[in-house]
Write a protein that binds this DNA or RNA. Structure first.
Lengths: 361, 361
DNA sequence: CTTGCATCTGACAACGTTGTCCAGGCTCTA
DNA sequence: TAGAGCCTGGACAACGTTGTCAGATGCAAG
């Protein structure tokens, strides 16, 4: 066995290859160009270009010579130069909140698949919910001259994108609306979904229902809160201040918020969780709670059916969000799209048990 | 020399560029260039470049004029042209199996963070476990002239990357080793992890233990199988053919495989699941199974602690895999790295209940 | 053997930026 | 006030590709 680095616990397996030819001082980084291929094949530059791009007008014999030179030199077309010349990069940018969040995985993948179908690559980055970082990232992508941009907004002012959009960068916002500019937006129906979820709890006899959500400056969080309030109002229930908790995101604070609303003067008998991260933490709290508390979460979670009780959720289709947005993006690029629209996709209530528990007071 | 505006003293440089031919029919897509900015500010091209790049040698007054012109025109540097000139793109490529798989989310994010710390963007795509698609994607990224490539291999022959690596594309393989080429590799210790997991089941009294894993052509799957066999052999247990199931991936077939080994002549009393997708399906099967069956899964799963019983797993640190690989990539680019290495990160057994159930026969 | 036509091929400019290098203007000193 | 030296600014080429266009070649017909 190989020695183990005792600090990191990693096994170090030395390798015997020589990378010396890659080091400075050598011809490191020099690559053959079409010119080199042309010289080797004894043809003109443009002929190589024609072969590489499969354009007509090259005799089979010439094509073979060129192809041999390409293989011998290991030539690969430099797309940077191509982009510069052609004006289109065949790549689109995706700015999301956190690539590691399970909600965004399927969304990214869906965008990627649509891009792939259009021959485009996907460049993506995480804003980490920071408006400045979102802007920095979006503008960096524009500097790369992506053909289009799918943005999950962190900030609420996107006027910085106006020059880019004017210059022809196709742009679609997903999951949350654009701020202060007129653009395509694809959303889930957060308001309706939350209202349905809370109404479901009310229908099962609950009247003291808590709401734990994200910062209200995030559009989806505000909409879900609005949905909660609407359902309560529809049922003629006055919402106590202590029942709503906003802006808490880290698990420890969510835990405290949940415990507080479960132990106040008018303790809640049910909780509506505003997003999947909150839901997970609340599940943990309720798992140890002495009496049963009903729970409905916004966003579905893997294994939700295997919990005890199963987790009732308001599910949104992340992949559909991504696909819809990306398809709209490419329709903008086709020129088949005219006025910006706002598309709202419906949510779906999935009952699995936790939302059907009766109030225990 | 150009005429001088006698009111301001600035030189007036006529804009000779006609760009109307770019996109016939509309001015859509035309963007200001440094030349336009220079013309408007009444300075030379290179002066604009200096301002844009924060290079010294520009008087504050000139800088202000240039900045005003930039803002007025909505100029943004064209990085394609910059890349062409400078040779480095400040972007790296990530080829993974499926962006939507929760295992790869944290890995991607970790790679992204390291890239960001080095001022680079991340371009990524999914191979969908298809070697051809992996190659197509990797080569497309090379054509874009990414500075480096992080690859989670789908195939087992990566000689197609040799010309690229020779040309200076830094390359690191993650999660699975490179095939037929000599390159940096960052892995989890699949063999050791599986052996530990199976030994754990044996230590709790099991002797008839099933193994359900992915296709053995996938390196990690083969290693985990090897670990399973090693643990059984260490305990002097002869493995029956019916106890191992390989190459099943879709849930329905995993379900059947599990049911078969639970009902054979020598039914297993415990199952070792070779990856997270298999684990999830097996959990579903066991949830309905009449007698308790012990389970250890490879890869941790969110909410694993909330199941009944809690899920015992062999956990690998996806984020650490990504971070380690990306850091190694940038060390290659720095030139501070010489020989390719194979790094194996340790796994960790997390006991939560399902792996500690005694055999029920 | 020339002409005409179609087919192939290659020279050249352009895409927008940055690196090199030189010119002109300024400050400082004697 | 002249000369030396420094600082700022700009002209120009180059990066590797593709679009344009004209030249070269081959073949058939006159």
């Amino acid at each position: 066995m190989h020695p183990v680095d005792d600090r990191t616990g990693r096994r170090i397996v030395p390798d015997t290859s020589r990378r010396a030819d890659r080091l400075p001082g050598s011809r490191y980084g020099t690559r053959p160009t079409m010119k080199d291929v042309a010289a080797r094949a004894g043809v003109g530059l443009k002929t190589v270009s024609r072969v590489v791009n499969g354009e007509p007008g090259v005799t089979p014999d010439t094509e073979r010579r060129v192809q041999e030179a390409i293989d011998a030199l290991g030539f690969r077309r430099n797309d940077s130069a191509r982009v510069l010349r052609k004006g289109r990069t065949a790549s689109i940018g995706l700015v999301l909140e956190d690539l590691a969040d399970p909600f965004y995985g399927p969304l990214s993948r869906a965008v990627e698949e649509v891009a792939r179908a259009h021959g485009a690559l996907l460049i993506n980055g995480s804003s980490a919910e920071d408006p400045d970082r979102e802007q920095e990232l979006a503008l960096a992508l524009c500097a790369r001259r992506v053909d289009g941009l799918v943005v999950i907004p962190a900030g609420d002012d996107h006027r910085y994108l106006e020059p880019e959009i004017r210059a022809g960068v196709a742009t679609v916002f997903v999951d949350r609306p654009a701020g202060k500019i007129d653009a395509d937006v694809v959303l889930s129906d957060s308001y309706g979904g939350a209202r349905d979820g809370v109404a479901h709890l009310i229908a099962h006899g609950h009247r003291r229902i808590g709401f734990i959500g994200d910062m209200p400056r995030i559009h989806t969080a505000a909409e879900r809160l609005r949905g909660y309030r609407a359902a309560m109002e529809d049922a003629g229930i006055a919402v106590e201040e202590a029942w709503t908790s906003l802006g808490v995101t880290d698990p420890e604070r969510v835990r405290r918020a949940a415990e507080e609303m479960l132990t106040g003067v008018d303790p809640v008998t049910a909780i509506f969780a505003g997003n999947n991260r909150v839901t997970v933490t609340v599940i943990r709290v309720l798992a140890e709670w002495p009496r049963p508390v009903a729970l409905v979460g916004f966003d579905d979670i893997e294994l939700a059916d295997l919990l005890h009780p199963g987790l009732t959720v308001v599910a949104q289709d992340a992949a559909l969000l991504g696909r819809t947005a990306a398809e709209r993006l490419f329709r903008q690029l086709d020129g088949t799209l005219l006025a910006p629209e706002r598309i709202e996709l419906p949510t779906r209530l999935i009952t699995r048990g936790s939302g059907e528990l009766p109030p225990a007071d």
